[in-house]
């Protein structure tokens, strides 16, 4: 016993080092798996608060480009509103059609990140705005990511620029679907894999979400095909997709809640 205590006292620095090192490795491994980073995330009171107050200042710097973007979106929505003559003279006879399947909540990104391999963003809306895990996040130009963790006032988003992110996507003109991944090489390009060889893929085609995952509605814009090649087994395409969003300059986003999601997940669990 004396020997053991002596050993501990003699090597106390090394043991402390070992203890703290294993704690940090534990946190690292946790952060690599989806939905497990319990303690170390920037959606807590302290870090969220600091980012929020800094964002209050820094949001002025790109006010002009963000205004431009919102004006473009308004313009597009106005065109849709006045362009659809067909429905103007008819009345909804089916009241179920009135209720939308998706609920949108506007939010601001207070911390953006795009240079590491697992990028997480922070939003200034959280559980008190009824935002929960696995809600989708989009901007006016296209897809951004999926909500990971929420605190009372803040939420973190797994960006599409995250090597662990996997989002179901498809070609706009046909219904061939695949998985959207990221190889961490460029913040402008993401990879669409598992598109079957038979699909008519062409450079410049639009990629949209497939609506199969009950996180995103169908036909949310993602990007256009930059180039493509067959994978090693020559059965599926590996497609580089150029994102519509400039992921390095994000401010106003929308969080999407699928109202029917509990029903869908319940059905799938049974």
């Amino acid at each position: 016993m004396q020997q053991i205590i002596n050993f501990i006292i003699r090597n106390k620095t090394f043991l402390l080092f070992l203890l703290l090192f294993s704690i940090s490795i534990l946190f690292t491994i946790q952060s690599h798996s989806y939905h497990k980073s319990k303690f170390i995330n920037s959606a807590n009171f302290l870090t969220g608060g600091v980012y929020n107050s800094i964002n209050n200042i820094s949001s002025y710097f790109n006010l002009k480009s963000q205004n431009q973007q919102l004006a473009e979106e308004n313009n597009r929505l106005r065109m849709v509103l006045y362009g659809s003559e067909s429905k103007k003279d008819s009345v909804y006879f089916d009241s179920i059609q009135f209720t939308s399947l998706y609920k949108f909540t506007p939010a601001n990104i207070i911390k953006n990140s795009y240079s590491s391999t697992n990028n997480l963003l922070t939003l200034n809306k959280g559980a008190k705005d009824s935002i929960k895990q696995d809600f989708g996040v989009i901007s006016s130009k296209g897809i951004i990511g999926i909500i990971d963790r929420t605190s009372n006032g803040y939420a973190t988003v797994i960006s599409v620029l995250n090597t662990t992110s996997q989002i179901s996507a498809q070609l706009k003109k046909t219904n061939h679907f695949g998985t959207l991944t990221w190889n961490s090489e460029s913040p402008e390009l993401v990879q669409l894999i598992d598109i079957p060889k038979i699909a008519p893929v062409q450079v410049g085609d639009t990629i949209v979400t497939s609506g199969r995952s009950s996180i995103f509605p169908k036909n949310v814009l993602i990007g256009v095909i930059e180039d493509f090649k067959l994978d090693q087994a020559e059965n599926f395409y590996e497609i580089n997709v150029r994102l519509f969003n400039d992921m390095t300059n994000l401010e106003h986003v929308y969080v999407i809640q699928n109202i029917d999601k509990p029903e869908i997940t319940k059905l799938l669990d049974e």
Binding site: I23, S42, S116
Partner: peptide, 27 residues
């Protein structure tokens, strides 16, 4: 050693990076 770990962990907390800065600073 403990303060270095704490500093790394503070940075990790802000950057959502798990424990990588804590491990590096500690080492």
């Amino acid at each position: 050693i403990f303060l270095s770990f704490l500093l790394g962990l503070t940075v990790d907390l802000f950057l959502d990076s798990g424990g990588i800065n804590a491990a590096a600073a500690l080492s």
